[in-house]
Amino acid sequence: MLVLDRLALTWPDFSVLYDLAVPRGALCSLIGPSGGGKTTLLQAVAGFARPVSGSVSFDGVDLTRLPPADRPLTILFQEHNLFPHLTAAQNIGLGLDPRLRLTALQQRQVEEALARVDLAGLGRRRPAELSGGQRQRVAIARAIVRDKPLMLLDEPFTGLDPGLRQDMIALVDTLRRERGLTVLMAIHTPADAATVSELMAFIDEGRVAAVGPPAEVLAMRIPALDRYFRR
């Protein structure tokens, strides 16, 4: 279970306060307007932003004070998930050893991960030589080799065409079922996520304004949601 308990962060012109619980193995999609606080929530869970109060815990372990590298999670950003001067295989290898000194066994793991995301044979390419979707699959492959129980996705499929976006979401869904991952996925096409998510959270003005099964949340008649869906 991932729990955000009155997790508060403040800036001079903005403050947020999150309460959220996601059961182990569930996929929770985060929807809401741009600037509403989806990214900030993910950054706080990942440890890139420091809360002033409250806590975040996973399976009973308090993560609030842990440095990013010690948290049991992997995060994928919208862009720049890869180092541009390293090859796809090297970018994946970093997930096994941040010094990039890989054993033969680890190199095989990298090849397997590449195959798992349908990129077999493309390991020697640099990010600039890959398409947008291929780049994000490399990032997912790195998440696979890192083998962390929690996965955070910050709109990583924005900008892909609809079919590809569906494929990627399906890939994430398959992986989490295979491995029992808990997934938090910010997305701004709620319909894409509805079928695979157990939970959907509507984030607005720095708060979790609504949370529940997707069908329920999408049907709620609260003003902020109405504004978001223009209905």
Partner: peptide
């Protein structure tokens, strides 16, 4: 900045 965040998450020494 994403590069630094990835590096931080991977625990690069």
């Amino acid at each position: 900045p994403e590069q630094w965040r990835i590096a931080a998450q991977l625990g690069m020494p």
